[in-house]
Design a protein around this nucleic acid. Structure first.
Lengths: 341, 341
DNA sequence: GTGAAAGCGCTAACAT
DNA sequence: ATGTTAGCGCTTTCAC
């Protein structure tokens, strides 16, 4: 019985035949394995080159269980934070010979779970989860091994997993302190969804700083990580006649929405209202925004996540999670230039 | 010889054993194949459910040659056009059971070629190329079959391939005509790199419209699709004292850069200078920009590309490329509100 | 140093 | 309607 389903690609058998050696020898050469005599090695390599042979990762995956594929879970690539993260992840992954599949979860647990199941079936080596929120245990359980997983950006509730996050609380506190020092006494904080640890930490930092100044009033609103959340919270506050003089968005996108709300109302930034955000997205430094923000080292976050993940995948002995907290830094720009006093 | 490399996953053999049927019967049930008696089918399905069996895509791929993996090539995910495109592609792909690998080419042919080689080795069913530029023939050759490829966003130079692009020339012309009607007589066009067909088409459309008005003066500059290109071109023109009253960016990012250049110079948009772009990126509608722009139907572009690609992959008979040109539409906002006369 | 052969988990003839 | 068997392209014992 001859199967005609053959693809046009050269196989290891072709190489072996052409080189007059056995398949195993070719395999050894390809994998840089043990002793192969220099002579045969060279001959095989020549044949490989002339035939343009490339080992099939699929066949390899079937026997090794490794696909050289990583997944990056994000909530929404439309938030400019994620493309920047992706670039860092992609670079590090590509360098190690891994491809990366991007999955948008929209911060929905079911969506994430479905993706994981499908990817597991398709054969995925590891997962970088940038938008953790709810059912992390389910996730770990599905994945079957904490080694295959690194959380990024949002600190997970589950223990025993590796993660790379920013020092959100301290960053937020230092931003808030800056505003307080500039004389602001009523500051609005537009937070994120309650399941997002980074949002909570930033809110905590905000309160930390506000509590240090007697008489300072904190306004807090929250919603999804979107422009609209910033816009609506700001409009509501403004409509209600609340006399705050500064607004902090839980990220730059929310801060942008806040700016829109301010401008739509005919007010100016920073003369009438200071605005600040988080992430230091590319856009923040633009002359059209000049947005003060707490910068995260997104590139480090991405590349470290990959390094940690690949390290865990490699090591077969017992596993200890790596948990890193990256320092954040305050970038002050014109959106918080005005002084109150 | 017993291999102990077994992964913890349930295999088709486990199911067969547990259900007391042969492997092929299980395979038939899984694939919804021909006649299996309702009784056995149900029994097998029960066992599958209770064992949590999931067929290995890798093993499947080895025999079928299909991995259910698509790739999306973009130049730079940091340009907000691409995340929007990705979302459309991802949705359509996921619906059909495909995962999508994103690759950033930075508009570099070598990078793209390397990615293709690696992906081919890893087993990739099809490719959506959103940032075509140079060596398309090499690409098609590498891929081995035009069926596996759909160009998007930029029309390829090679013939015989499917693509989905926007009606860039007409869109650009209608935008330009609008500016001319508003009294602008010296208009700057900041274009993209020469290898990008969409940039060239937009420039052509600009010239089409400008030529219709005697005495209208066209200023043209170009560079990569980046904010910086817009910023620099604008600064140069302004510094040179050129009396243009409107600037068109080849995309919204370039237009944003132009805005920055104008603001940095202490000028206002639109009072001193009208600005317009292309793509209608989410940010364009923001109150901080209110950028007039030629909108592309990005969602349609992405989903149609996937449909076409999957259709081509499915059909094994002879192949005829599908080439679609999506209409673009003018979105006028405040950035072009000022009238000259 | 090299080869033979088993097997990774599945699909697809080919029997029955 | 169901089972048997031969691969898919590779890695990996195990012999020699």
């Amino acid at each position: 019985v001859t199967t005609l389903r053959r693809s046009n690609a050269t196989t290891i058998a072709d190489v072996a035949a052409a080189a007059g050696v056995s398949i195993s020898t070719v395999s050894r050469v390809v994998r840089d394995d043990n002793d192969v005599s220099p002579a045969t090695r060279e001959k095989v390599q020549d044949v490989i080159a002339s035939l343009g042979y490339r080992p099939s990762s699929i066949a390899r995956a079937l026997v090794s269980g490794q696909t050289q594929i990583l997944a990056l879970f994000v909530s929404d690539l439309t938030n400019p934070f994620y493309p920047q993260l992706f670039k860092a992840v992609e670079r590090a992954a590509a360098q190690a010979g891994y491809a990366v599949i991007v999955c948008s979860t929209d911060d929905d647990d079911d969506t994430a779970a479905h993706y994981v199941e499908r990817l597991l079936q398709q054969g995925l080596d590891g997962l970088i989860y940038a938008s953790s929120g709810g059912e992390e245990d389910t996730l770990v359980e599905l994945l079957g091994d904490p080694r295959r997983l690194v959380f990024v950006n949002r600190r997970p509730k589950v223990t025993g997993c590796s993660f790379v996050v920013s020092d959100n609380r301290a960053g937020s506190a230092s931003l808030t302190r800056h505003l307080l020092q500039n004389g602001h006494r009523m500051i609005g904080f537009i937070g994120g969804p309650s399941f997002a640890a980074n949002a909570n930490e930033r809110l905590d930092g905000f309160h930390d700083a506000m509590r240090e100044v007697p008489g300072a009033t904190a306004l807090v609103s929250s919603g999804p990580f979107s422009k609209d959340t910033g816009l609506k919270a700001t409009s509501n506050w403004l409509k209600a006649g609340l006399p705050m003089t500064a607004i902090i968005g839980v990220n730059d996108t929310v801060a942008l929405g806040a700016m829109e709300g301010i401008l739509d109302r005919g007010l100016r930034v920073p003369e009438d209202m200071s605005v600040a955000g988080f992430d230091n997205v590319d856009l923040a430094s633009s002359s059209v925004l000049r947005l003060s923000t707490v910068a995260q080292d997104i590139a480090a976050m991405g590349s470290q996540a990959v390094q940690i993940l690949l390290g865990q995948l490699r090591r077969k002995d017992r596993f200890a999670p790596t948990q890193v907290i990256l320092p954040s830094s305050l970038h002050l720009r014109q959106s918080t230039d005005a002084r109150r006093e």
